[in-house]
Design a binder for these strands. Structure first.
Lengths: 354, 354
DNA sequence: CTAGAGTGTGGGAGCGCTCCCACACCTGGC
DNA sequence: GCCAGGTGTGGGAGCGCTCCCACACTCTAG
């Protein structure tokens, strides 16, 4: 498609050499009848070039099909024009949720206008964490986006000490020193529980995520706040500790049902947990929503395929991804700028389960 | 965590310079009391180094916290130690299916033992396709994995002309010249339809994917073959053309029901289409599986959450990812080797819908 | 004892860029 | 006429590596 210089190569074809040799900046300069500096200036959009020289260079570039060698540029500028999206994916389940794909969609939408390349890096164990650490230390990216932040994860601290521009999805706590973007988890949870109460539920339980994640704590906090605002007391017997997974949701739901068989509403901190809980409730003969109303969190694809379709708290995940990318780009260009925090609103999507 | 040299920097702190200067190979050589060549040999694991020199170098590396500069290495070797996973994601739906995450899991599992870095690159429109083209032409990766291959996609041809090592997930057709890995789609479809026939279905319909994808054609072919093997004729009225999406499944199912209200089994070329079809069937008052048996394809998370849980053809997606990565690594090391094709078996997971 | 074939090693050259200094060439004001 | 202050330009230096040649040193066979 694009014209490519097909010059006869060296006499020795062998020793694993590439078939085609790419033209260099020097060759462009020679063809355009200018110096290397001028070609470089044209490529980098410097205004200090005469129209005549610029045109000569541009047509030489087109003729040779010249593409700059990024490695050479990186060697000089120590900029890589790429950013990493780091996913500390403990288990495949994390990935089978649309959360990550939506983040990625948002990030790459924001990057579309730039020539930043997005690198996805999965970290699933200690070994991979070390590889990433070496990778980041080697300055192979200009910045890092980190999703799924656990309180005891050493990654954020690593990013801090490396002083590499970075933005988190979520945060470790109130005092998070790194830039971050997250959803209004507490607000969303509160909204969900208020909906259950308004519906007439009087014994509303909750299934939490792993409490070493701020996001899980925030959702539990929203649950508690909604109850207290309604003048109801927070009852530990109605709180089931789980881990965002379907199986975890099933186990916790069974225990909850044992402890408080009279419960009539459940707010689950994730859709897949809610799906697990719904299975258990049905197996126990409860009708949804008549006997027990159920609300999930995420509004993922799972919510649309349960029976009945699930009411769920939607968070603007793609928008989160876009915002993260925007903050990171800013941080890369204006190094040393103040860290930013962004909180995006959540919304209740009402279907049939509550 | 890892020891990092914190030397006082140059007197001039400004002009956007990085805070910490990384040690170079030259400094390691000086500290170890050897030449540059020897350090390079140690780093690259050459056997032609004395034990004494090797140890001196290793401790110097540890002391300085030395990490090689990849850009410099790339400039010389023109190897990048990274590979791209290219996803021509037309719409978000593609991503919300677990297919891609499973591929990614498999690929990175296979890459774990190497120091290859995986780059995920999304291509969603013409503009992004051009960016990718420039990126690949600039030789920024050692190889490419391409998933979701459409017949009219210019990407495979681009990879061919660039002569860059690459492996496809799926293929354009029988004569695919690039290496590829795919599942036994025809066999899986055949298995599914045989299952329906054995169950006693006599009017088995099918919902296809977009027929510009070989994968959709193969599944349709398997459907047809199973019918013919059972001595039944292939009836176009029982074939609903769809596009792998839920909405597409709904629309096609409605049409099918209009045309052939007597159908008693449906093989759907994807789970989400099957989910859409099941909604339509129920709305039309059909019981599943008693009136109409339904089988999906993929065995994705959706299959476990329909009511009733869906029988589906499982393909070993993660294994596909692993195999793709393995083939690509081979192709990168032994350039010019013959293209390879791998077909992995599919399996019928029987649940309640058929 | 010497030629010959290994080993291990240092360091020059060079990968393809950007940075920046020096130099030409133009103005215009005195 | 001169000098100051622009503007555009060429090309040297150097980023941090790998490649490879040359040179010491072995050790063995004749």
């Amino acid at each position: 498609m694009s014209p490519t210089a097909q010059r006869p190569d060296a006499l020795h074809p062998g020793v694993g050499g590439r078939a085609t040799a790419r033209p260099t900046l020097e060759e462009v300069a020679a063809l355009a009848g200018v110096g290397r500096g001028t070609v470089s200036r044209v490529i980098n959009g410097s205004p200090r070039v005469s129209t005549k020289a610029r045109e000569a260079v541009q047509s030489a570039i087109a003729e040779l099909g010249y593409v700059p060698n990024r490695a050479a540029r990186t060697l000089v500028t120590s900029r890589t024009d790429s950013i990493a999206l780091v996913v500390p994916e403990a288990e495949t389940r994390l990935f089978s949720e649309p959360y990550f794909s939506d983040i990625i969609s948002g990030v790459s939408a924001e990057l579309a206008e730039t020539d930043m390349q997005l690198l996805l890096i999965l970290v699933r164990n200690q070994r991979e964490r070390e590889r990433l650490s070496a990778y980041l230390t080697a300055q192979r990216v200009d910045g890092v986006l980190l999703v799924s932040v656990h309180q005891d994860d050493p990654l954020p601290a690593l990013l801090e000490s490396l002083e590499i521009p970075s933005v988190l999805a979520g945060r470790r706590g109130d005092l998070e020193p790194l830039s971050y973007v997250h959803a209004d988890n507490a607000g969303g949870a509160r909204m969900a529980v208020r909906h259950l109460l308004r519906r007439g539920c009087t014994r509303v339980a909750t299934l939490t995520g792993p409490l070493d994640m701020e996001v899980a704590q925030a959702r539990l906090g929203g649950y508690r706040r909604a109850l207290e605002e309604a003048g109801r007391s927070y009852d530990e017997a109605l709180v089931g500790l789980a881990d965002f997974t379907e199986e975890g949701g099933r186990v916790a739901m069974r225990e909850l049902l044992d402890r408080r068989p009279d419960l009539d509403g459940v707010f689950c901190a994730s859709d897949v947990m809610a799906a697990g809980a719904m299975q258990v409730l049905r197996a126990a003969g409860r009708r949804i929503p008549d006997d027990v109303a159920v609300i999930g969190f995420d509004d993922s694809i799972v919510a649309r395929h349960t029976d009945p379709p699930m009411t769920s708290v939607r968070q603007p995940i793609e928008e989160m991804g876009r915002t993260m990318a925007r903050l990171l780009l800013d941080e890369i260009t204006e190094r040393g700028r103040a860290r930013r925090q962004v909180v995006l609103a959540t919304e209740l999507v009402v279907r049939d389960s509550a």
